[in-house]
Nucleic acid binder design. Structure first.
Lengths: 253, 253
DNA sequence: CGAAGTTTTGAGGACCTTCAAAAGTTGTGG
DNA sequence: CCACAACTTTTGAAGGTCCTCAAAACTTCG
């Protein structure tokens, strides 16, 4: 078991350490946490609104989203998570899930018990800090989505989301020559963008027609980066690509 | 100085302890942090996008918002902060501000140096946890705003924001008999709701006409809670009124 | 009391939605 | 390897929500 799980959590450690090195004991503590690996089919819920989960999960392979469903049946997707992302680290501190999490393709999820997360966070300030930073980056993306949906029209909004994907896939090493696999149906993308699938379809056609993007099956290619960035008003600072401010404090002292 | 500042930071400690008691040394460490108190006029920026602030701020009196301004001049307000709220605790971990913060009324702000925040967080797991929870609550509100703007129409959306205010003012002890002071112009409210001031004005008139709300000067009164809640599809769980899951771990061990 | 800001009103039009159905794609089993 | 079912994308047409622009009425405050 450990033999097959080790690489998964190592991927998350690498992501954290890409921002700031961890003290050896903190890294060891994180890597030694027991994990569960699970394969989940397409369009299955991992967490349902109202659940009281006791584990946080990490995407090893695949793609998941967080969403809420309204009374009238309409859905809003609030975030997407690609391989290497912790999906709901924060749930470690919360009683009851205020949203659902589900897969969009067959997905491998690695989960860690909340109790373990809280324990290593309490024992290792550098990990507490890394978890805090993770939640903060999450929050920054939510803020940008609010701006995107609130103040940009369909074309700008769609371009902005695609550029966010491109930036995140690039950071995860999954962007190949301006292209990335985006296994999300137009209906789901429209639920993320706060518009209808019909209008998203027409918007994508426009983006293709103007040579901003090219699509083939589920491969998305950015054809014209400068124009696309200008159209969307995209600025990647909100993704915090440079990591947190300082090396951990107190440790240095 | 300390004499006049002490009550301000005490207010934040009380808020944290309303969720879960702090160990005595953690409380003492937080209360002993040096703070600066500042009075700021209406519509003044506290932080501008692109700034590299070195202090986090707390609202003692007044009201502030966080916002982004787009290329074309339109603005999206991403959050409001009322007395007792930490506005940008998270900025302690971030290099450069990706959004502005400004006042809506004359406001008293208490600030704490980032270095101090990071130090007490590293030294006291219970504080690291409290700060993490604060950021997480923030994120939950951003998520709800995304849903609100993305999938609710103008009437539902406006009702939802007003109910959020009501819930938060109530938690802060600032709700008096279904009424609260909301010193925000319609232009600013519309920037938070992702709509135009003209349309918000008509929406408010409709809410008044249907007896959902009553307004007098800048006092907002909820006239019909059940109908309002039903209209908005409001559920306060996302505000995490019950605080974090457990008492701090490890401390008990 | 006058100036500046805020709220309200009106009219026309754009963006996006709704509903419905056709065309295209993917996966499965005979 | 083709046929068929299920899903996804695309198209069309009509209509509603919300926006834009502009000006008037009302409030607030020095």
């Amino acid at each position: 078991m450990l033999g097959s799980d080790y690489p998964a959590i190592q991927k998350y450690v690498s992501k954290i350490e890409g921002r700031a090195a961890l003290p050896a004991d903190a890294r060891a503590a994180l890597l030694s946490l027991p994990v569960q690996t699970k394969m989940i089919e397409t369009y299955q819920d991992i967490v349902r609104e109202g659940d009281r989960p006791i584990r946080s999960c990490f995407v090893d392979q695949g793609l998941v989203s967080r969403y809420k469903t309204l009374r009238n049946g309409s859905r809003q997707i609030m975030s997407f998570h690609i391989p290497g992302d912790m999906v709901d680290l924060q749930s470690a501190l919360v009683m009851v899930a205020d949203h659902g999490i589900r897969t969009h393709v067959p997905t491998t999820v690695v989960s860690i018990a909340h109790a373990d997360i809280l324990r290593v966070a309490a024992d290792h300030p550098a990990l507490a800090r890394a978890f805090w930073f993770d939640t903060l980056t999450d929050a920054a993306i939510f803020r940008e989505w609010t701006v995107n949906i609130g103040r940009r029209n369909a074309r700008q909004r769609t371009a902005h989301l695609l550029l966010e994907f491109a930036a995140r896939f690039r950071a995860a090493g999954l962007l190949v020559e301006d292209s990335f696999e985006l296994p999300i149906s137009q209906a789901d993308l429209s639920d993320a963008l706060g518009m209808t699938a019909v209008h998203l379809n027409r918007t994508l056609q426009w983006l293709r027609g103007e040579r901003y993007i090219r699509t083939h099956a589920r491969t998305m290619t950015i054809e014209n980066w400068p124009e696309m960035i200008a159209l969307a008003g995209f600025d990647s600072v909100y993704l915090h690509p440079e990591g947190p401010r300082h090396p951990p404090p107190s440790v240095a002292a």
